[in-house]
Amino acid sequence: MAAFFDLYGFLCIMILQQALLGYSLYFPLMAGQLSLASIGFYSLGGYVAAIMGTHPAFEAWRATLGWLMIPLEWLAALLLSVVLAVAVGLPALRLRGIYLALATIAFVQVLNVVVLNMPIAGGAVGIFGIPQAFESRFAYIWFFGPLLLLTILFTLRLERSAAGRNFMAVREDELAAGAMGVRTTANKVLAFVIGCALAGVVGAMSAPFLNTWNARQGTFDAGVACLAYVLIGGSRSKWGPLLGAALLVALPEVLRPLKDSRLILNGMVLVLACVYMPRGIAGLFAGRRA
C-alpha cells in the first residue's frame, strides 16, 4: 500500500485537482453554456497565490499571518476570479453554443499573452520556489479533497434548489425558460461565475502544489482537457467530472510502458470512449438502472 502511494500518490492528487477543474466547466454546462474559460481563471488564481507567496511586497503579510496567508490567497483568488468572471461573463454570455466556447478560448489566449508581458508574473520562467504548505505532495489531499467534497455537496444541493432548476430550465430550452419568467441572463452569468471562482481557487491551491507557476499552465490543450473530463465522465451527471478526470489523468500513466507511443493509444481511448460511451462513464451506470 505504501509503495502504491509512493508511486501514485501524486497522480491521485492530480485526479482530484483536475476533477475540480472539470466541475468548474460542469456548472456553466448545467445552464447549457459551453465555456472554456476555466483554465484562464485557474492560471490567474495560481498567479495570485504565487505572487502573494513569493513577492517581497507581501513579506510583512507573510511574517504576520503565517499559515493564514494560504487561505487568504484562496480568498484573493476567489474575489479576483468573481470580479473578472462577471466582467467577462456579462457581455460574453449573450453568445450561444460554440460562439461562447470560442469567445472564452479567445479570452484565455489574450490573458496568457498579457500575463507573459507582466513583469510581476516572472515572464517565461514564471514564478518558482512557492512556499510549500506541506512536506509531501500527497498531503495536498487536505487542500483538494475537502474542496472536492464541498463541490460535490454543493452540486447536490444546487440540483435540488431553485437556482439549479433554473439552470436546467435554461439548458433545456432557453426561450421557454425565459417565457416562464426565469431570468436567463442572470442565471447563465451565475453558473459561469461559480465555475470561474472554483477554477480560481483550484489555481491558488495548485501553485504551491506544483511549486512553480508560469504562462504554460493556461494552454488551450489544458483547457480542452477539462472539457473532455466532463464529457467523457458524463456531462449530465454530477459524478461525470470526477469519473472523467480519473480515467483521463490516469490513462497516460497506465500507458507509461508504451513509452513514446503512449499518446497514440491515449487518443484511441478518447475516440472509443466517445463512440461507445456517448453518455459518458456515468451513463453506463445510469443506463443499467433505467
Binding site: 472539457l227 464529457l231 487518443g267 484511441m268 481511448v269 478518447l270 466517445c274 463512440v275 453518455r279
Partner: peptide, 26 residues
C-alpha cells in the same frame, strides 16, 4: 459513429481531438 448513435454534438469535439492526438503522435 457519433451521428449514428445520435450522441451529444459536443462529444464530436472530444472525439476529433482524440483523432488529432493519434495523428500527431503517429
Amino acid at each position: 459513429p457519433l451521428r449514428a448513435r445520435q450522441a451529444d454534438a459536443l462529444l464530436a469535439l472530444v472525439s476529433s481531438l482524440g483523432v488529432a492526438l493519434i495523428l500527431v503522435n503517429l
